[in-house]
Simulated scan of single mutants.
Amino acid sequence: MREIFKKKHELWLKVLFSAFALPKGEISDVLLDFADIEFRHMKWIAKDIVKNRGDFNFDRDKIDIKANNFYELIDKLIDSLLAIEISYKDSALFYRIKNDERYMIEKLREFKKFEDFEITAFNKNMKYKNLDKKSLDALILFLFEEIYKEYELILVYFYSSIHTDNVSLYSIYEDLIYESKFHLKSFAFLQAKLGLLSLPREVMEEVYKFEDLKKFLLDGIEEEKGAKEQCRALAAAVKDKDLSSFFEFINNQEDYHIKLMEEALKIID
């Protein structure tokens, strides 16, 4: 089951970042829905592992998400979905997962009725509107840092949610996962426009398998405050009204993340 979980983690990332590689629209929306389903599969498998007194981690093998054109991207996803099915066991859980993914394969094959087109998310064009070099450099650095941070937070809160019996804490973790997924999506679509879309680096076990939850939350609050400052600085540095407004919006959301984490601290105390 741990090996299956690892493969599902990799598959979730493949589907998710394939969605980011496409222009926003009907097909990317479908892939985002599929990624959410894959994430739910991960949760069910993780719960099963822990219920049977095991544990899991977020180790992963090298993942190739790059594609030169739309058909290549779709074919890679189909191949990944077909390859993982042979690992599945005979149970109600995997019957559900198999049927979900068979439907995904069917929909992906239907997408090839559309005309092929070039994928530009990996071409390193490093252009966005008419940003000057200073603004562009600040934006690129921010995106790389924040995409990793949001991915890390998703995994940390995922791991914590699987290992808690406290309903109130679980609810807070779920909210924080949802928020980080939204931020990751927003930042990754921007990264793709710059032609720099790439997977965040792997998260080490010591990051999410911590001994002191209270210390983790206190450190997390400080990290959120730091993220707020980065957003504020970027909003001021980037000479683009829409981007500045967007980063102010993200900055304001970080305020509520801090409140959620403070609520979690109260529950622990």
Score class of each variant (00 low, 15 high):
L143E: 00
K62M: 09
N99W: 09
Y128W: 12
S244G: 15
A192W: 05
N125L: 09
F189I: 07
L31M: 11
S245F: 14
L77S: 13
F246S: 10
I49G: 00
K259N: 09
H163W: 09
E72T: 09
F249G: 02
K129T: 02
N52R: 06
N252H: 07
S244N: 14
Y151A: 02
Y157V: 10
I267M: 09
I258M: 07
F187V: 02
Q253L: 09
W44P: 03
E101W: 03
I258S: 02
D212V: 14
V167Y: 14
E26W: 03
L213M: 05
E118C: 01
R102E: 03
L265K: 10
F210E: 13
F182T: 12
N130I: 04
K112Q: 01
G195F: 04
K98V: 02
Y159A: 08
K133Q: 08
L184H: 02
F216P: 00
V203M: 05
N166F: 05
S168L: 14
K107H: 00
K127V: 12
L32H: 07
R40P: 00
A35M: 14
M1P: 11
E10I: 06
I63M: 12
D29E: 15
S244T: 13
I49T: 03
D165G: 06
F144N: 01
F114G: 06
I84F: 12
A83I: 12
I84A: 09
I268Q: 10
D219N: 14
L136Q: 06
R109G: 00
A83R: 15
N252G: 01
E205W: 08
S87D: 13
M204C: 07
V30D: 13
S160P: 00
F158T: 07
Y95C: 03
F34T: 07
L131H: 03
Y148F: 15
L108A: 14
K43I: 12
E229H: 14
E202M: 11
E211K: 15
E152C: 08
K66M: 10
V238M: 09
L108S: 07
K113E: 14
A83H: 10
F189E: 08
I49P: 01
K266D: 06
L190P: 00
L194P: 02
K47E: 14
I63F: 03
F122L: 15
E152Y: 05
L194A: 01
M42D: 08
N69S: 06
V50C: 06
L31G: 04
M261L: 15
